[in-house]
Structures are given as structure tokens and as C-alpha cells.
Amino acid sequence: MAVTVTAEGGPAEQARPLPDVPGPRSWTRAFDDLSQGWRQRSLWGYLGWQDIKQRYRRSVLGPLWISISMAVIATAMGILYGALFNEDIKTFLPYVATGLLIWNFIQGCILEGSEVFIANEGLIRFLPAPLSLHVYRLVWRQVLFFAHNVIVWVILMIIFPHPLGWMSLMALPAFAVLVLNGGWITILSGILATRFRDIPPIVASLTQLVFFMTPIVWSYDRLQENPAVAERARIAELNPVLHFIEILREPMLGDAITWRHWIVVGVITVVGWAVALVCMRNYRARVAYWV
């Protein structure tokens, strides 16, 4: 150890440089937050499941109400819009139900994501946990809702069989992509909504509008087959939610895979995570003060 001599002639230790500690705005802390949150998956996995149990506490059917609600809404909308658009109920009802199944997952990530940090104000202020833990918890809860609603899809596939084949296995990576996008949507909308409290009601209003602009209760292919509106129907592809719906609905119904939907979704995924990570890097440390 290097020493120096003081004015009195005694030895003194040489000052050592302080360790390089990353500041609050650093990529290191942003990625550490995501990795630490992932390592605590036993915690947020348990909390996500408890969220569902608490919502249906003292109910006789419990979480089964998730599937019942989904089945009632899908059946009612399928029959109603099938009659309006003169569609065959055997194909249109599974089409609508599968679209609603996927939409509910996307909508949950958007709506609940915009309030994920506001709703966990107490935990964020007093519990020294990574911010991403609340993001993982919310996305996991939406995955559980999706798993419950898949029961409706299984029943419809039994009643109205579709030509499912090996390409239907593409539903697995498609759902994984949806979950991945649910992460950046929750991070981005959660941080922005925590800073600007007007964002949650704005997001709720826009989400209702997007629902009717997305081919969930109406068929995009039918519009393309109509020469009178075929050109204008392509405007619907400017809606990014359409591509997320189709990458999963096509394999779940045994339809041919349209790869341009995958390309669009891939680009959105990369850009979305890039923006979310920048937001995480710059404003992660401020969320505790904003809530």
C-alpha cells in the first residue's frame, strides 16, 4: 500500500479513488432493474395469481367467471355482427371469439399498464424492489386471464372444427411476441402516465376507438373481397393492433400465415423496446417521486 509522509513526519495513507458508481440515469441501472425483477419471478408470479383470486373472492365459481364472461360476450357479439354482415356463424363466431381473446390481452396491457405504478404507489414508496417487478406482475396477470379464456376457444374448436395443422403451432411464438410487447407497452405507458395523470383517461378513450377500428367483430378479408371498398380497406393496415391480432388469430383458426403481419410486428417490437428502455433509463428513478 502506497504511503505519504505528513508535515509532522508521520506516515499517512494515500487517498484511494472512489469506485465508479453509475448515476440514476444509466443503462446499467436500467438493465439491472429488469434483471433483478426477473429474478424475483417467484414473488410477482405469486402476486399475479393472488390478484385474480382477490378479484373473485367469496365467489362460488371463482376465476371461472373470467371464461364465462368471455363466452357470453363472444357469443352475443358473434351472433349479432354475424347477422348484420350476413356471415356464416360456423366460421364467424370462432373468428370473433378468437379476436376478442387476443384483444382482451392487448387491452389489459394498455389500460392497466397506464396505471401500473400509480396503483402500486405504496409498494413503490416503501418497498425497496425493482420497478420492473410491477411490470412483470401485470403482464403475468394478463397471461393468466388469457389462459382462462383459451377454454372458450377450445370449446368452439370442438363445436365448429377448423383445419388445424402443424402451422397452428405458430400460435406459441406469436403469443410470446405479444407478451414481449406487453412488457414495453406497460413500461412506457406506466412511466408516462405516472408523470402526466391525464394520460390514463385519454388512453381509455383511444382504446375504445381502436377496438372498432380493428377487425375483431368485422372481417378484414371480406372488405378486401368487395371491389367497391377494397382499396380503402387497406387503410386498416395502418392500425398496428391489426397485425398483432392476425399473427395469433391466423394459426389459432388454421388459416394461412401472412408474413407481412410478422414483419410489421417485428419492427414495432424493436422500436417499442428501444423507446421503453430509453424512458426506463432516464426516468426510472423519478417514478417514486411522481407517484
Results as ranks from 00 to 15, higher is better:
residue 97 A to F: 09
residue 98 T to M: 06
residue 128 P to T: 02
residue 119 A to G: 12
residue 135 V to R: 01
residue 137 R to F: 09
residue 120 N to S: 14
residue 116 V to Q: 05
residue 149 N to Q: 15
residue 112 E to K: 14
residue 94 P to W: 00
residue 150 V to Y: 02
residue 122 G to L: 02
residue 105 F to T: 06
residue 119 A to R: 15
residue 93 L to G: 13
residue 140 W to P: 14
residue 124 I to F: 03
residue 148 H to N: 05
residue 121 E to H: 14
residue 135 V to G: 00
residue 149 N to V: 04
residue 129 A to I: 01
residue 142 Q to C: 10
residue 115 E to W: 13
residue 135 V to F: 00
residue 98 T to E: 08
residue 114 S to D: 09
residue 93 L to F: 14
residue 117 F to Q: 14
residue 119 A to E: 12
residue 134 H to W: 02
residue 107 Q to A: 15
residue 98 T to V: 15
residue 152 V to E: 07
residue 130 P to V: 00
residue 99 G to P: 11
residue 128 P to V: 03
residue 143 V to S: 06
residue 132 S to R: 00
residue 129 A to P: 06
residue 133 L to P: 04
residue 131 L to Y: 03
residue 104 N to L: 07
residue 95 Y to A: 09
residue 112 E to P: 14
residue 100 L to K: 08
residue 118 I to T: 09
residue 95 Y to L: 10
residue 93 L to P: 13
residue 94 P to R: 02
residue 147 A to G: 07
residue 129 A to K: 00
residue 120 N to L: 08
residue 116 V to W: 05
residue 111 L to C: 10
residue 108 G to Q: 11
residue 129 A to T: 03
residue 127 L to G: 05
residue 151 I to L: 13
residue 125 R to V: 07
residue 103 W to F: 08
residue 93 L to S: 11
residue 94 P to V: 06
residue 122 G to N: 03
residue 134 H to E: 00
residue 108 G to L: 10
residue 101 L to V: 14
residue 130 P to D: 00
residue 115 E to H: 10
residue 132 S to M: 01
residue 125 R to H: 05
residue 129 A to E: 01
residue 117 F to A: 08
residue 148 H to G: 06
residue 131 L to H: 01
residue 99 G to W: 12
residue 134 H to N: 03
residue 117 F to N: 07
residue 143 V to M: 15
residue 127 L to E: 02
residue 101 L to P: 13
residue 150 V to W: 04
residue 139 V to N: 05
residue 146 F to V: 01
residue 122 G to S: 03
residue 112 E to D: 14
residue 125 R to N: 04
residue 122 G to M: 04
residue 99 G to L: 11
residue 109 C to E: 03
residue 111 L to V: 15
residue 103 W to I: 06
residue 140 W to N: 13
residue 114 S to E: 04
residue 138 L to F: 04
residue 93 L to N: 12
residue 146 F to G: 03
residue 106 I to A: 05
residue 137 R to S: 04
residue 111 L to M: 12
residue 113 G to Y: 02
residue 100 L to A: 12
residue 110 I to A: 08
residue 115 E to I: 13
residue 152 V to K: 10
residue 133 L to E: 00
residue 139 V to G: 07
residue 114 S to A: 13
residue 122 G to P: 10
residue 109 C to N: 06
residue 124 I to T: 06
residue 128 P to E: 02
residue 121 E to T: 13
residue 139 V to L: 12
residue 125 R to Q: 10
residue 115 E to C: 11
residue 100 L to I: 11
residue 132 S to V: 00
residue 109 C to G: 06
residue 141 R to C: 09
residue 103 W to C: 09
residue 147 A to D: 10
residue 108 G to N: 11
residue 152 V to R: 11
residue 127 L to C: 09
residue 141 R to L: 07
residue 106 I to Y: 03
residue 131 L to T: 01
residue 149 N to D: 06
